[in-house]
Structures are given as structure tokens and as C-alpha cells.
Design a protein around this nucleic acid. Structure first.
Lengths: 187, 187
DNA sequence: GGCGTCATGTAATACGTTACATGATTAC
DNA sequence: GTAATCATGTAACGTATTACATGACGCC
């Protein structure tokens, strides 16, 4: 059936309710974006393909003058989603982290710059942690309102992850700063 | 000058010493791969381009019968690398984590399957942590031998990151298991 | 002689983002 | 009336992987 991985964001979002492509993109942007992004350029063609495969069903609606097509899961779509959720195929894990890459090559820098770079890295993770905390109250409310808990759980995961990064940076900053201090006293 | 981000892996690796494209790929595969991958399809064309830009210098060598071209950094290349290392342009941060995506949609599953999925996620991170710990002794030795410490530091980061994931999974598994238990006693 | 490694390179493919075109509605 | 939002769609571009072709060396 040649399902790619963007497929499942769409199927998963549609399982939570009938939605348009535009809505799916908005949902992704406030939820899975931090660990799984998707753009219009992927979503719209994929919706067409999934409908052709019979995994989703679209219905046109222009009742309020806005042309729109909302999709819902078919039985086959629900089955495909569950199949994916319960399969133990190897997970796609990918990390691209320019900050850590810079750190990798930081022997080229003088100690003060090394520290400065670490602080920038920390600031970045603090910023993201802040973003996540800002949406936390709404996510919690949504969780209690809809009886859907796992989206909230993954937000908790995101916050814990960013906090881990921040703490690691702080520890490493302290280590580096101490060494610079010691070197200065000896030198 | 239109430098993309694969550029800097190459410049950085060449700062550590004169290398062929093949060697750069091997180095990436045992070091930055976990937070910054690169393939032959990127490396070889980029080496040609960087030489044309005057950031690196290649020299042919077939002394042992094997045709090969080893590159080293030029002054301009070193400057470009330092410029990147010290700049505070926004960092490229990207995470694609199919396991967390599955978790996000796990309200669709019965509790037993939710737990099973979490265990799979943990197993995956335990596997990677194991891989990283396996290369740790060699990295530590290399660190002490060459006086280059930051590559080792990023390996420590990788291990800490994978350990964080494992611990988060364990905590969450316990929470879920308790709830299932409680529900069973009430039901 | 054959397998693994060293070594270069590219073509085909897949994946993903950005930017734009289009046009309606809603809120100020 | 105009800016923001809702809504669809795609073309161009950039990024990255896979797979293959090619060929030599070193070890068993």
C-alpha cells in the first residue's frame, strides 16, 4: 500500500475528528510539530492519495461560502492506523542539532567562546521550553475536556526533554568555567 | 558564499586533519551521525564545491596504487569555520521521532498496547545508549591522546540524552501500569 | 580466487519547505 | 476598507538517501 510516514500524522489527526487539510496543518503546528512536522506541500497531495486508497473519505462543503473539503477515517483507515500503532517495525528516529554539532568542533575556539556557545545553546532550549510551557495549560484543559490524554503526555515529554537539555548545558557550563578558573590561577 | 550546513561538518572534520571524502564519511558515521548525518551524495559534490570556493585544498595521491584525493583547510576555510562556530545565527534544530508520534496517537489503543508501545520505545533508546557506550572507551582514549575534548563531550551528551529517554519511559510506564491496576481493582 | 575494505563518483529517487496564486469570510 | 484568517493547491527549490558503477589493495 506504500504508506509513508506523513500518512500517519494525517490518519491520526482524522481519528480525533473530521478535519480539512488546513485544520490538520494547524493541529500539527501546535502539537506534533516539535517531533514531527508537516507542510501543506505534503498534506494536500497525501490527502488526495489516501482518499484514492480508500483510507479516508472527503466531503465537499461550501455552506458558508468557503469552499472546503473535510475528511474522515474509513474502516480501512482506522485499521491502517492501528496496524501502524501496534507494529514493531524499526522506529524512524532522526535528530539534527546544529548546536551540538558546533560543540563537537569547539576545540577550535578559545575557552571564553566555548562557554559563550554553550550559553547560546542553553538559551535556545530555554526558549523552546518556554514555548511549550505556554501551551501547556490549554493542552491540559483539552486533555480533561476530551478524555484524550496522550497528546498531553507527549507535551510533558517535550518539556522534560527541553529541561534535560537546559540542565545538561548548565552542568557543562559549570565544568568548563571551573577549568578556566583553575587554568587562570595556575597560569 | 552560500554555505549550507553540510559544509561545516566537512570543514570541521578537515580542521582535525587532512582527510579524503571516504574518511570524512567514516568519521561522521562514528561520531556526529547521531545528531548530524551526511552521505556520500552530499560529501563528494560538496568537497568539489568547497575547493572551488577556496575553502579547502585537495591533493591527488596514488602512491599505493589507490587513487585518492585528500583535502586540507585553507586559511579562508578556517576563517569560515570559526565564523560559523562563533556566530549566533538561529540554530537548526530538528527532531523526527516516530516513537513519540505513535505515543501522541495512543489514545486509540487499549491500555495493554499502550504499555507495550512504551516498552518498545524504551528498548529502542536502550539500544542506542548501548551503542554509544560501546564506542565510549575509544572516544575517551582518543580524547586523551589528541587533546581534543569536545567530540568526547558530545558523546557524553548523547549518552545522557538516551538515558533521559529511557528514564522518562520507565517513569511513564510506571504511571500507566498503576492506573491500569487501579482501574482493574475498581472495575 | 574471493571477500572485505579503501576510494570516488553520480543518477534516480524520495522527502520536505517555501512561496506564491487564488478567493472567500470575518473582525476591526 | 483593509487586514487577518480560512481554505486549497502546486511549482520551484533545496536537501538527503540509496543504489549502483568502477576499480585497486590486502588478507586468508
Amino acid at each position: 500500500m506504500e504508506l509513508n510516514r506523513t500518512t500517519y500524522v494525517i490518519l491520526g489527526m482524522l481519528r480525533l475528528g473530521r478535519h480539512t487539510g488546513y485544520e490538520i496543518k494547524s493541529l500539527v503546528d501546535v502539537s506534533t510539530r516539535f517531533f514531527w512536522a508537516a507542510s501543506y506541500g505534503q498534506i494536500y497531495p497525501e490527502l488526495a492519495r489516501l482518499e484514492e486508497l480508500g483510507l479516508i473519505e472527503g466531503e465537499d462543503d461550501a455552506s458558508d461560502g468557503r469552499r472546503r473539503r473535510a475528511y474522515s477515517l474509513t474502516g480501512a483507515g482506522e485499521a491502517a492506523l492501528t496496524e501502524w500503532l501496534t507494529s514493531d517495525d524499526p522506529l524512524h528516529l532522526e535528530l539534527r542539532h546544529e548546536g551540538v554539532l558546533k560543540l563537537f568542533f569547539s576545540d577550535a575556539l578559545p575557552p571564553r567562546e566555548q562557554l559563550a556557545q554553550l550559553r547560546r545553546l542553553r538559551a535556545e532550549h530555554e526558549r523552546i521550553a518556554g514555548q511549550l510551557r505556554a501551551i501547556e495549560p490549554e493542552a491540559r484543559a483539552g486533555c480533561e475536556r476530551d478524555g484524550v490524554r496522550f497528546p498531553y503526555l507527549t507535551l510533558e515529554w517535550g518539556i522534560a526533554y527541553e529541561d534535560f537539555q537546559v540542565e545538561w548545558c548548565k552542568r557543562t557550563e559549570r565544568r568548563l568555567a571551573e577549568e578556566i578558573q583553575t587554568a587562570a590561577e595556575r597560569g
